[in-house]
Design a binder for these strands. Structure first.
Lengths: 92, 92
DNA sequence: CTCCTATTTAGAAAAAAATCTAAATAGTGG
DNA sequence: CCACTATTTAGATTTTTTTCTAAATAGGAG
Protein backbone atom coordinates (compact mmCIF):
# COMPACT_ATOMS: atom_id res chain seq x y z
CA UNK A 1 0.00 0.00 0.00
CA UNK A 2 1.62 3.20 -1.11
CA UNK A 3 4.48 3.82 -3.47
CA UNK A 4 6.96 4.27 -0.62
CA UNK A 5 6.39 0.73 0.59
CA UNK A 6 6.55 -0.59 -2.95
CA UNK A 7 9.82 1.12 -3.79
CA UNK A 8 11.33 0.07 -0.46
CA UNK A 9 10.31 -3.50 -1.25
CA UNK A 10 11.94 -3.37 -4.69
CA UNK A 11 15.09 -1.74 -3.35
CA UNK A 12 16.37 -4.90 -1.65
CA UNK A 13 18.47 -7.28 -3.77
CA UNK A 14 17.19 -10.45 -2.10
CA UNK A 15 13.62 -9.45 -2.81
CA UNK A 16 14.45 -8.68 -6.41
CA UNK A 17 16.03 -12.11 -6.70
CA UNK A 18 12.82 -13.60 -5.37
CA UNK A 19 10.80 -11.68 -7.93
CA UNK A 20 13.07 -12.85 -10.72
CA UNK A 21 12.65 -16.40 -9.50
CA UNK A 22 8.89 -16.03 -9.60
CA UNK A 23 9.00 -14.94 -13.21
CA UNK A 24 9.51 -18.66 -13.86
CA UNK A 25 6.15 -19.46 -12.29
CA UNK A 26 4.68 -19.89 -8.83
CA UNK A 27 6.84 -21.41 -6.13
CA UNK A 28 6.37 -22.41 -2.50
CA UNK A 29 8.16 -20.57 0.29
CA UNK A 30 10.41 -23.60 0.71
CA UNK A 31 11.34 -23.76 -2.97
CA UNK A 32 12.15 -20.07 -2.92
CA UNK A 33 14.29 -20.50 0.18
CA UNK A 34 16.39 -23.21 -1.50
CA UNK A 35 17.89 -20.55 -3.74
CA UNK A 36 19.28 -18.50 -0.89
CA UNK A 37 21.74 -18.98 1.93
CA UNK A 38 19.25 -17.57 4.38
CA UNK A 39 17.06 -19.19 7.00
CA UNK A 40 13.45 -19.88 6.20
CA UNK A 41 12.50 -17.21 8.70
CA UNK A 42 14.44 -14.59 6.79
CA UNK A 43 12.94 -15.62 3.48
CA UNK A 44 9.54 -15.44 5.10
CA UNK A 45 10.34 -11.91 6.22
CA UNK A 46 11.15 -10.86 2.68
CA UNK A 47 8.05 -12.55 1.32
CA UNK A 48 5.96 -10.63 3.82
CA UNK A 49 7.46 -7.35 2.60
CA UNK A 50 6.74 -8.21 -1.02
CA UNK A 51 3.24 -9.26 -0.12
CA UNK A 52 2.59 -6.08 1.88
CA UNK A 53 3.64 -4.13 -1.20
CA UNK A 54 1.27 -6.28 -3.25
CA UNK A 55 4.12 -7.26 -5.56
CA UNK A 56 3.37 -10.92 -4.99
CA UNK A 57 0.24 -12.89 -4.13
CA UNK A 58 -0.03 -16.09 -2.15
CA UNK A 59 -2.13 -19.16 -2.70
CA UNK A 60 -2.41 -21.99 -0.18
CA UNK A 61 -2.46 -25.62 -1.21
CA UNK A 62 -2.14 -28.46 1.30
CA UNK A 63 0.31 -27.11 3.82
CA UNK A 64 2.34 -25.22 1.25
CA UNK A 65 2.03 -21.56 0.43
CA UNK A 66 2.68 -20.76 -3.19
CA UNK A 67 3.78 -17.31 -4.23
CA UNK A 68 3.50 -15.62 -7.60
CA UNK A 69 4.22 -12.24 -9.12
CA UNK A 70 1.42 -9.72 -9.17
CA UNK A 71 2.14 -8.02 -12.47
CA UNK A 72 -0.44 -5.28 -12.22
CA UNK A 73 1.44 -3.47 -9.48
CA UNK A 74 4.48 -3.16 -11.71
CA UNK A 75 2.40 -1.07 -14.09
CA UNK A 76 1.73 1.35 -11.25
CA UNK A 77 5.40 1.53 -10.32
CA UNK A 78 6.31 2.25 -13.93
CA UNK A 79 3.74 4.98 -14.18
CA UNK A 80 5.00 6.48 -10.97
CA UNK A 81 8.60 6.52 -12.10
CA UNK A 82 7.61 8.06 -15.42
CA UNK A 83 6.15 10.90 -13.42
CA UNK A 84 9.14 11.18 -11.09
CA UNK A 85 11.43 11.47 -14.05
CA UNK A 86 9.19 14.07 -15.64
CA UNK A 87 8.78 11.70 -18.58
CA UNK A 88 5.48 11.81 -20.40
CA UNK A 89 3.54 8.55 -19.97
CA UNK A 90 0.85 7.21 -22.35
CA UNK A 91 -1.36 6.53 -19.32
CA UNK A 92 -1.71 10.05 -18.04
CA UNK B 1 26.46 2.88 -11.08
CA UNK B 2 24.33 -0.22 -11.02
CA UNK B 3 20.61 -0.69 -10.66
CA UNK B 4 20.89 -1.62 -6.99
CA UNK B 5 22.36 1.76 -6.12
CA UNK B 6 19.79 3.51 -8.27
CA UNK B 7 16.83 1.74 -6.72
CA UNK B 8 18.20 2.27 -3.22
CA UNK B 9 18.53 5.96 -4.04
CA UNK B 10 14.95 6.18 -5.24
CA UNK B 11 13.63 4.23 -2.27
CA UNK B 12 14.15 7.07 0.22
CA UNK B 13 11.29 9.57 0.58
CA UNK B 14 13.54 12.58 1.20
CA UNK B 15 15.44 11.87 -1.97
CA UNK B 16 12.24 11.51 -3.93
CA UNK B 17 11.10 14.87 -2.56
CA UNK B 18 14.36 16.34 -3.78
CA UNK B 19 13.81 14.88 -7.22
CA UNK B 20 10.30 16.24 -7.36
CA UNK B 21 11.65 19.64 -6.37
CA UNK B 22 14.16 19.49 -9.19
CA UNK B 23 11.41 18.86 -11.72
CA UNK B 24 10.78 22.59 -11.33
CA UNK B 25 14.29 23.35 -12.59
CA UNK B 26 17.81 23.44 -11.21
CA UNK B 27 18.33 24.50 -7.60
CA UNK B 28 21.32 25.07 -5.36
CA UNK B 29 22.00 22.80 -2.38
CA UNK B 30 20.88 25.63 -0.11
CA UNK B 31 17.61 26.18 -1.93
CA UNK B 32 16.91 22.47 -1.79
CA UNK B 33 17.68 22.43 1.92
CA UNK B 34 15.15 25.16 2.64
CA UNK B 35 12.36 22.72 1.86
CA UNK B 36 13.36 20.27 4.56
CA UNK B 37 13.71 20.26 8.31
CA UNK B 38 17.12 18.71 8.01
CA UNK B 39 20.61 20.10 8.44
CA UNK B 40 22.59 21.10 5.37
CA UNK B 41 24.91 18.19 6.07
CA UNK B 42 22.05 15.73 5.82
CA UNK B 43 20.76 17.24 2.61
CA UNK B 44 24.28 17.04 1.25
CA UNK B 45 24.36 13.36 2.16
CA UNK B 46 21.17 12.72 0.17
CA UNK B 47 22.43 14.73 -2.77
CA UNK B 48 25.59 12.64 -2.83
CA UNK B 49 23.49 9.46 -2.97
CA UNK B 50 21.44 10.80 -5.86
CA UNK B 51 24.55 11.91 -7.64
CA UNK B 52 26.29 8.55 -7.14
CA UNK B 53 23.24 6.94 -8.73
CA UNK B 54 23.51 9.46 -11.56
CA UNK B 55 19.94 10.57 -10.95
CA UNK B 56 21.04 14.17 -10.66
CA UNK B 57 23.91 16.19 -12.08
CA UNK B 58 25.69 19.13 -10.52
CA UNK B 59 26.89 22.36 -12.03
CA UNK B 60 29.04 24.88 -10.17
CA UNK B 61 28.47 28.60 -10.44
CA UNK B 62 30.18 31.12 -8.14
CA UNK B 63 30.25 29.33 -4.83
CA UNK B 64 26.93 27.63 -5.37
CA UNK B 65 26.39 24.12 -6.59
CA UNK B 66 23.28 23.73 -8.69
CA UNK B 67 21.61 20.38 -9.05
CA UNK B 68 19.31 19.14 -11.77
CA UNK B 69 17.55 15.93 -12.71
CA UNK B 70 19.34 13.60 -15.08
CA UNK B 71 16.36 12.29 -17.03
CA UNK B 72 18.21 9.68 -19.07
CA UNK B 73 18.77 7.45 -16.06
CA UNK B 74 15.05 7.24 -15.43
CA UNK B 75 14.68 5.58 -18.82
CA UNK B 76 17.05 2.86 -17.65
CA UNK B 77 15.17 2.38 -14.42
CA UNK B 78 11.92 2.06 -16.32
CA UNK B 79 13.36 -0.48 -18.69
CA UNK B 80 14.73 -2.42 -15.77
CA UNK B 81 11.40 -2.52 -13.96
CA UNK B 82 9.62 -3.59 -17.12
CA UNK B 83 11.92 -6.56 -17.16
CA UNK B 84 11.52 -7.30 -13.45
CA UNK B 85 7.76 -7.35 -13.87
CA UNK B 86 8.05 -9.61 -16.90
CA UNK B 87 6.37 -6.87 -18.92
CA UNK B 88 7.41 -6.60 -22.54
CA UNK B 89 9.21 -3.30 -23.24
CA UNK B 90 9.45 -1.55 -26.61
CA UNK B 91 13.18 -1.09 -26.00
CA UNK B 92 14.19 -4.73 -25.77
C1' DC C 1 -5.95 -37.38 18.17
C1' DT C 2 -0.99 -37.38 17.28
C1' DC C 3 2.97 -36.83 14.55
C1' DC C 4 5.20 -34.58 10.83
C1' DT C 5 6.31 -30.99 7.61
C1' DA C 6 5.89 -26.12 5.93
C1' DT C 7 5.77 -21.73 7.16
C1' DT C 8 5.34 -17.79 10.11
C1' DT C 9 5.94 -15.04 14.38
C1' DA C 10 8.59 -13.23 18.40
C1' DG C 11 12.48 -11.39 20.21
C1' DA C 12 17.33 -10.51 20.13
C1' DA C 13 21.54 -9.36 17.60
C1' DA C 14 23.98 -7.54 13.64
C1' DA C 15 24.33 -4.56 9.79
C1' DA C 16 23.10 -0.64 7.10
C1' DA C 17 21.21 3.91 6.51
C1' DA C 18 19.94 8.50 8.09
C1' DT C 19 20.85 12.27 10.96
C1' DC C 20 23.32 15.55 13.79
C1' DT C 21 27.31 18.68 15.39
C1' DA C 22 31.63 20.40 14.45
C1' DA C 23 35.29 21.07 11.47
C1' DA C 24 37.18 21.38 6.75
C1' DT C 25 37.10 22.98 1.97
C1' DA C 26 36.37 25.96 -1.74
C1' DG C 27 35.23 29.83 -4.10
C1' DT C 28 33.84 35.25 -3.79
C1' DG C 29 34.58 39.70 -3.22
C1' DG C 30 36.90 43.30 -1.18
C1' DC D 1 45.58 38.03 1.73
C1' DC D 2 41.32 38.06 4.66
C1' DA D 3 36.70 37.56 5.85
C1' DC D 4 32.40 35.63 4.37
C1' DT D 5 29.17 32.31 2.49
C1' DA D 6 27.91 27.74 0.49
C1' DT D 7 28.64 23.23 0.72
C1' DT D 8 30.87 19.00 1.95
C1' DT D 9 33.39 15.76 5.01
C1' DA D 10 34.37 13.38 9.49
C1' DG D 11 32.89 11.11 13.32
C1' DA D 12 29.40 9.91 16.57
C1' DT D 13 24.60 8.76 17.50
C1' DT D 14 20.00 7.25 16.37
C1' DT D 15 16.88 4.82 13.61
C1' DT D 16 15.67 1.37 10.38
C1' DT D 17 16.37 -2.89 8.17
C1' DT D 18 18.04 -7.45 7.84
C1' DT D 19 19.19 -11.62 9.88
C1' DC D 20 19.26 -15.33 13.18
C1' DT D 21 17.47 -18.83 16.76
C1' DA D 22 13.75 -20.66 19.04
C1' DA D 23 9.04 -21.19 19.56
C1' DA D 24 4.30 -21.07 17.64
C1' DT D 25 0.79 -22.10 14.13
C1' DA D 26 -1.49 -24.59 10.62
C1' DG D 27 -2.67 -28.14 7.90
C1' DG D 28 -2.31 -32.93 6.15
C1' DA D 29 -1.50 -38.04 6.90
C1' DG D 30 -1.83 -41.96 9.43
Amino acid sequence: MGMNETLKAISDPVRRDIMNLLKGGKKSAGEIGEHFQLTGATVSYHLSKLKAADLIAEERYKNFIYYQLNTSVFEEVLSWIYTLGGIRNEND
